[in-house]
Computed example of a mutant assay.
Amino acid sequence: MIDVILLEDEPVLRAELGEFLEQTGYAPQCVASLAEWERHFDVRRHRLAVIDIGLPDGSGLALIQRLRQDGQQLGIVVFSAHNTSADRIDGLATGADHYLGKGCDLDELEAVLAALGRRLGLQQSQQRWRLELGAGRLLPPGAPPVALSRQDLLVLHCLVRAAGEEVSRRQIVQALGADYLDYDQRRLDTQMRRLRRKVQSESGQLLPVKTLRGSGYCFYAAADVAE
């Protein structure tokens, strides 16, 4: 997974963006201030950054200017409530690669990060995951196996056998043996959150499942299914 460092001081938005980045296939490091940035930014690991401008202990623009003066080549996206034409020009002139206003569709943020990743030659890991149906477990690459409940196994089977493709909510609900029209969609969202936490807790790996808002999910890593 590609590591992204997110600098945003507003707690609710920081949590929302962090979850969104994780769901779209990135490994986010979320920080709330310039001081936290200094403690957590790792030039060897972080190749993309999403940076707010107005921070409690300084200016995001000043940080971007310093990063560029130091020769840092990471891709930088400004994500700010200050979104006039003059603000955008100032941000891009300072060294940001893209400038997005808060309130934009988060799919645009995902598209911008993907474009930056391509330009910088960043690629997601192609290590293979393995779903073992008989044993009822998921084998993340280079990590301990994760035992699965029957429901989690059914959901992952639906996703892994179509790895790289969109799987609709209807397909997943039907794989669970439920009637889509009578099914409470919040149950599926809750199950996916629990499954992500379980995989990360037991294996140390982020589950490579992207949420396709309003439509379904995608298992975006290379994967195999074993009977």
Rank of each mutant, 00 (worst) to 15 (best):
M1P: 13
I2T: 02
D3E: 13
L7T: 10
P11F: 08
A15Q: 03
L17Y: 11
L17P: 09
Y26T: 04
Q29R: 13
A32N: 03
E38T: 09
V43H: 00
R45E: 02
H46R: 00
A49I: 09
I51H: 01
I53F: 09
L55M: 13
P56C: 05
G60E: 08
A62L: 04
I64C: 11
I64V: 15
R66F: 06
L67M: 12
R68V: 04
Q72Y: 13
Q72W: 10
Q73V: 14
L74A: 09
G75I: 11
V78W: 14
S80N: 01
A86E: 11
A86R: 14
A96P: 04
A96M: 07
D97E: 03
D97K: 00
H98C: 10
Y99M: 08
Y99S: 07
L100P: 12
L100M: 05
G101E: 02
K102Q: 15
L106P: 03
D107P: 02
L109M: 14
L113D: 05
A114F: 10
L116Y: 01
L116A: 02
G117L: 01
G117S: 14
R119W: 02
L120F: 07
G121I: 00
Q124T: 11
S125A: 10
Q127R: 13
W129E: 08
W129V: 00
W129N: 00
L131Y: 02
L133M: 07
P141I: 01
P144L: 07
P144D: 00
P145I: 01
L148I: 05
S149L: 08
V155E: 06
A162C: 14
A163S: 15
E166D: 03
V167C: 13
S168Q: 09
S168I: 10
R169C: 08
Q174A: 09
A175Y: 11
G177L: 06
A178M: 13
A178S: 10
D179H: 13
Y180G: 00
L181P: 12
D184S: 06
Q185M: 08
L188G: 07
D189K: 15
Q191Y: 01
Q191N: 04
R194C: 05
K198A: 15
V199G: 05
S201G: 11
G204N: 03
Q205M: 12
P208S: 03
V209C: 08
G216R: 06
C218A: 06
Y220L: 13
V225W: 02
V225I: 09
V225D: 04
